[in-house]
């Protein structure tokens, strides 16, 4: 009887530890999903199944065959897309998110880039048995472009401006296919318009 209780406690302990690690991003999302300053978008796995048909039926004027193939190749392995976005407080929000994600054990930094001195971009991946099953993109932008060094010179930064975006792609992420996508859409800016229905 005591042994059964012990093994049950052990199983619960392991389950709790694993879920606590995997839910770091969900915890972060849960803090802001009901905040009206944030825009939240979710695309489910079922929608990705439908998307393959939608992409194949798109007008050829909208995308060429190479773009259709590149997009289909990526989309077919995806299970969800979550977007959290905010206008204003871009850098402050970026820093807060970075602290949370960098400490979440399953996530590894893929790349950190500072673009044009005012945009900070971090890529994180979560691997499982050598397969990337989540790709996170964290973007913090300062609208005035005066950021010389974010970490050393905070007085010069107007934290109330700029945009913040957190993208989470879940599924079987093949970074080579993402690279092919970049080549196929190299002429497009890739700005994300989250105004639904436009």
């Amino acid at each position: 009887m005591n042994l059964k209780f012990l093994f049950l406690a052990l199983a619960l302990f392991f389950a709790g530890t694993l879920s606590a690690q995997q839910d770091a991003i969900s915890t972060y999302f849960s803090k802001y999903v009901d905040d009206e300053d944030f825009t939240v978008v979710y695309v489910s796995g079922k929608m990705f199944d439908l998307m393959e048909t939608v992409i194949s039926n798109l007008d050829t004027e909208d995308m060429n065959s190479e773009q259709v193939k590149a997009l289909t190749d990526v989309v077919q392995d995806m299970k969800s897309l979550r977007i959290l976005s905010r206008e204003g407080d871009g850098i402050a929000q970026y820093r807060s998110a970075k602290k949370t994600i960098a400490g979440a054990k399953p996530y590894e930094v893929l790349m950190t880039v500072r673009e044009k001195g005012s945009t900070f971009v971090d890529f994180y991946i979560r691997e499982n048995d050598g397969v990337v099953d989540e790709l996170l993109l964290l973007i913090g932008e300062s609208a005035d472009g005066r950021v010389a060094n974010l970490l050393d010179d905070e007085e010069e930064i107007d934290l109330s401006t700029g945009n913040f975006t957190l993208l989470s792609f879940e599924g079987r992420i093949d970074l080579n296919k993402i690279g092919e996508l970049a080549k196929a859409f190299e002429d497009e800016g890739g700005e994300i318009d989250l105004n639904i229905g436009n």
């Binding site: 990526v74 989309v75 993109l137 993208l167 690279g179 970049a182 497009e188 890739g190 700005e191």
Partner: peptide, 9 residues
């Protein structure tokens, strides 16, 4: 979103 990610990578 994917174009944005791929372009930034």
């Amino acid at each position: 979103a994917l174009t944005n990610v791929s372009r930034r990578i």
